[in-house]
Simulated assay, not measured.
Amino acid sequence: MKHLKQLALLLACCVGGNLISALLHGALPSNVLGLTLLLVLLICRAVKLHHVEDTADFLLQNMAFFFLPACLGILDIFADIKGEILAILAVCLLTTLCTAAATALTVHIVLKLQHRENEEAFDRD
Protein backbone atom coordinates (compact mmCIF):
# COMPACT_ATOMS: atom_id res chain seq x y z
CA MET A 1 0.00 0.00 0.00
CA LYS A 2 2.92 2.30 0.80
CA HIS A 3 4.25 2.02 -2.75
CA LEU A 4 0.85 2.82 -4.23
CA LYS A 5 0.65 6.01 -2.16
CA GLN A 6 4.15 6.99 -3.26
CA LEU A 7 3.31 6.28 -6.89
CA ALA A 8 0.08 8.27 -6.57
CA LEU A 9 2.04 11.22 -5.22
CA LEU A 10 4.55 11.06 -8.08
CA LEU A 11 1.74 10.75 -10.62
CA ALA A 12 -0.06 13.69 -9.03
CA CYS A 13 3.06 15.79 -9.61
CA CYS A 14 3.10 14.63 -13.24
CA VAL A 15 -0.56 15.56 -13.68
CA GLY A 16 0.10 18.89 -11.98
CA GLY A 17 2.94 19.50 -14.43
CA ASN A 18 0.57 18.68 -17.31
CA LEU A 19 -2.02 21.12 -16.00
CA ILE A 20 0.52 23.91 -15.51
CA SER A 21 1.91 23.28 -18.99
CA ALA A 22 -1.60 23.48 -20.44
CA LEU A 23 -2.19 26.76 -18.60
CA LEU A 24 1.06 28.10 -20.06
CA HIS A 25 -0.05 26.88 -23.51
CA GLY A 26 2.88 24.47 -23.72
CA ALA A 27 5.56 27.12 -23.14
CA LEU A 28 7.40 24.70 -20.84
CA PRO A 29 7.45 20.89 -21.01
CA SER A 30 5.04 19.22 -18.61
CA ASN A 31 7.61 16.69 -17.38
CA VAL A 32 9.98 19.49 -16.36
CA LEU A 33 7.15 21.32 -14.62
CA GLY A 34 6.10 18.13 -12.82
CA LEU A 35 9.61 17.56 -11.50
CA THR A 36 9.85 21.23 -10.53
CA LEU A 37 6.56 20.89 -8.67
CA LEU A 38 7.91 17.85 -6.80
CA LEU A 39 11.12 19.76 -5.99
CA VAL A 40 9.15 22.72 -4.64
CA LEU A 41 7.00 20.39 -2.53
CA LEU A 42 10.13 18.73 -1.14
CA ILE A 43 11.83 22.05 -0.41
CA CYS A 44 8.70 23.43 1.31
CA ARG A 45 8.46 20.16 3.24
CA ALA A 46 4.89 19.66 2.08
CA VAL A 47 6.17 16.27 0.91
CA LYS A 48 8.83 14.47 2.90
CA LEU A 49 11.52 12.48 1.14
CA HIS A 50 10.36 9.21 2.70
CA HIS A 51 6.94 9.80 1.09
CA VAL A 52 8.39 9.17 -2.39
CA GLU A 53 11.85 7.69 -1.88
CA ASP A 54 11.19 3.94 -2.32
CA THR A 55 9.10 4.26 -5.47
CA ALA A 56 11.40 6.91 -6.95
CA ASP A 57 14.41 4.63 -6.34
CA PHE A 58 12.60 1.74 -8.02
CA LEU A 59 11.78 3.89 -11.05
CA LEU A 60 15.36 5.14 -11.30
CA GLN A 61 16.76 1.61 -11.07
CA ASN A 62 14.47 0.49 -13.90
CA MET A 63 14.79 3.59 -16.05
CA ALA A 64 15.97 1.65 -19.10
CA PHE A 65 12.52 0.11 -19.34
CA PHE A 66 11.03 3.56 -19.99
CA PHE A 67 13.33 4.14 -22.98
CA LEU A 68 12.01 1.11 -24.86
CA PRO A 69 9.08 2.95 -26.53
CA ALA A 70 11.42 5.70 -27.75
CA CYS A 71 13.90 3.16 -29.13
CA LEU A 72 11.15 1.24 -30.89
CA GLY A 73 9.82 4.51 -32.30
CA ILE A 74 13.24 5.24 -33.78
CA LEU A 75 13.25 1.81 -35.39
CA ASP A 76 9.91 2.64 -37.00
CA ILE A 77 11.27 5.81 -38.62
CA PHE A 78 14.80 4.59 -39.28
CA ALA A 79 14.24 4.46 -43.05
CA ASP A 80 13.29 8.16 -42.97
CA ILE A 81 16.31 9.27 -40.95
CA LYS A 82 18.91 6.94 -42.46
CA GLY A 83 20.34 9.73 -44.64
CA GLU A 84 20.82 12.01 -41.64
CA ILE A 85 22.31 9.44 -39.27
CA LEU A 86 25.80 11.01 -39.22
CA ALA A 87 24.39 14.44 -38.40
CA ILE A 88 22.22 12.95 -35.65
CA LEU A 89 25.18 11.07 -34.17
CA ALA A 90 27.32 14.23 -34.35
CA VAL A 91 24.65 16.19 -32.47
CA CYS A 92 24.38 13.40 -29.87
CA LEU A 93 28.16 13.38 -29.38
CA LEU A 94 28.38 17.17 -29.19
CA THR A 95 25.54 17.50 -26.70
CA THR A 96 26.98 14.67 -24.58
CA LEU A 97 30.33 16.47 -24.45
CA CYS A 98 28.63 19.78 -23.60
CA THR A 99 26.64 18.11 -20.83
CA ALA A 100 29.77 16.46 -19.42
CA ALA A 101 31.66 19.77 -19.53
CA ALA A 102 28.80 21.64 -17.84
CA THR A 103 28.57 18.95 -15.15
CA ALA A 104 32.33 19.02 -14.56
CA LEU A 105 32.31 22.81 -14.33
CA THR A 106 29.40 22.76 -11.88
CA VAL A 107 31.11 20.16 -9.70
CA HIS A 108 34.34 22.18 -9.81
CA ILE A 109 32.55 25.37 -8.73
CA VAL A 110 30.62 23.61 -5.95
CA LEU A 111 33.77 21.94 -4.61
CA LYS A 112 35.59 25.28 -4.69
CA LEU A 113 32.73 26.93 -2.77
CA GLN A 114 32.67 24.08 -0.23
CA HIS A 115 36.43 24.31 0.21
CA ARG A 116 36.20 28.08 0.76
CA GLU A 117 33.36 27.53 3.26
CA ASN A 118 35.44 24.96 5.14
CA GLU A 119 38.44 27.32 5.27
CA GLU A 120 36.25 30.15 6.62
CA ALA A 121 34.81 27.83 9.27
CA PHE A 122 38.34 26.71 10.21
CA ASP A 123 39.51 30.32 10.48
CA ARG A 124 36.62 31.17 12.82
CA ASP A 125 37.59 28.34 15.20
Rank of each mutant, 00 (worst) to 15 (best):
L4K: 02
K5W: 09
K5S: 14
K5N: 13
Q6W: 02
L7Q: 06
A8Q: 07
L9V: 07
L9K: 07
L11V: 04
L11P: 01
A12K: 12
A12Q: 11
A12S: 14
C14S: 11
C14Y: 04
C14F: 08
V15R: 14
V15N: 07
G16A: 12
G16R: 03
G16T: 11
N18G: 09
L19W: 04
L19Y: 13
I20N: 01
I20A: 14
I20G: 01
S21H: 05
A22V: 00
L23M: 10
L24K: 02
H25C: 06
A27D: 06
A27R: 13
S30F: 00
V32I: 14
L33K: 01
G34R: 01
L35M: 11
L35H: 02
T36Q: 07
T36I: 07
L37G: 01
L37H: 02
L38F: 05
L39E: 09
L39R: 09
L41W: 12
I43Q: 13
I43C: 04
I43F: 11
C44H: 05
C44E: 09
C44F: 10
R45E: 15
L49T: 08
H50L: 05
H50S: 14
H51C: 12
E53N: 08
D54Q: 13
T55M: 15
A56H: 02
F58H: 10
L59M: 15
L60C: 06
L60F: 14
Q61W: 08
Q61P: 01
N62Y: 15
N62G: 10
M63K: 11
A64K: 10
F65T: 10
F67T: 04
L68T: 08
C71F: 09
L72E: 10
G73Y: 03
G73M: 03
G73Q: 03
G73H: 02
L75C: 12
L75T: 10
D76R: 09
A79W: 08
I81W: 04
I81M: 02
G83L: 01
E84R: 13
E84G: 04
E84C: 02
E84W: 04
L86A: 15
L86I: 15
I88G: 05
I88W: 04
A90L: 08
A90P: 00
C92G: 00
C92I: 03
C92W: 03
L93V: 15
L93H: 04
L94D: 00
L94P: 00
T95I: 08
T96R: 05
L97E: 05
C98H: 03
C98R: 05
T99S: 13
T99C: 08
A100E: 12
A101G: 01
A101L: 15
A102I: 08
T103R: 07
A104F: 09
A104V: 02
L105K: 10
L105N: 07
T106H: 14
V107I: 15
V107S: 08
I109Q: 12
V110H: 00
L111C: 06
K112L: 10
K112T: 07
L113V: 05
Q114S: 02
H115E: 12
N118C: 03
E119R: 12
D123G: 00
R124H: 06
D125P: 01
